[in-house]
Amino acid sequence: MSKTHHLDLLNNSISYFREAVAYAQRESDDTNYWKFAILHVVQAMELAFKERLRRVHPTFIYESVDRPGKTLSLKGAVERLRNPQIGNIPIADWEVAKILKAFDLRSELTHFEFNHSHDHIELKFAEISVS
């Protein structure tokens, strides 16, 4: 008998955030820990934003509200959250810029070559995680 493990958007976000913190707290010179901390914290943000949109209306988490299927990207979620007719959340431009930089860094880490010093990647995690 196989067991299933279900995490809704909020609890999935919390799970990723906990993993990000766990990676960040490791005392190691292994830069991969910081890389995974960044990946997990950005994923946690994306899921949390989708959860906020889901609370407005479940279809708002999808790219197309007319044809649910693929869910929004982090960028799309931020746009909808800022939209006065949808999320109506006042997110400052500097905060959006910070979120988008985090998104771009995650994309770089997962889709391109990784070429950062340990100190640089640790600093990037701090910039993403602290407001």
Rank of each mutant, 00 (worst) to 15 (best):
A22N: 15
Y23K: 04
Q25C: 07
R26L: 10
S28P: 12
D29P: 09
D29V: 10
D29S: 11
D29W: 09
D30L: 10
D30R: 11
N32S: 12
W34P: 05
W34M: 08
F36I: 02
F36Y: 15
F36V: 02
A37R: 13
L39E: 15
H40C: 04
V42N: 04
Q43F: 11
E46M: 09
E46N: 08
K50W: 03
R52T: 08
L53T: 03
L53D: 02
L53Y: 01
V56D: 00
H57D: 13
H57W: 11
T59D: 04
Y62K: 02
V65I: 07
V65G: 00
R67M: 10
P68D: 05
G69C: 00
G69Q: 01
K70V: 08
T71V: 14
L72A: 12
G76R: 02
G76P: 00
G76N: 03
G76L: 03
V78E: 02
V78D: 01
E79C: 01
E79Y: 02
R80L: 08
R80E: 05
L81R: 00
L81A: 07
R82L: 12
R82N: 11
R82K: 12
P84D: 01
Q85P: 00
I86T: 06
G87V: 03
G87Q: 06
N88A: 15
N88C: 13
P90M: 12
P90A: 12
P90R: 14
A92W: 12
A92D: 14
D93Y: 14
W94R: 14
E95A: 06
V96W: 13
K98A: 15
K98M: 14
I99E: 05
L100S: 08
L100K: 14
F103S: 11
F103M: 10
D104V: 05
L105Q: 13
S107G: 14
L109I: 10
T110M: 10
T110G: 12
H111A: 05
F112K: 07
F112W: 10
E113D: 06
E113T: 03
F114K: 07
F114I: 06
H116G: 11
H116T: 04
H116F: 14
S117A: 07
S117P: 07
H118E: 10
H118Y: 11
D119Y: 08
H120Q: 11
H120T: 03
E122C: 11
L123C: 03
K124H: 09
F125M: 07
A126Y: 07
A126F: 02
E127T: 11
E127C: 04
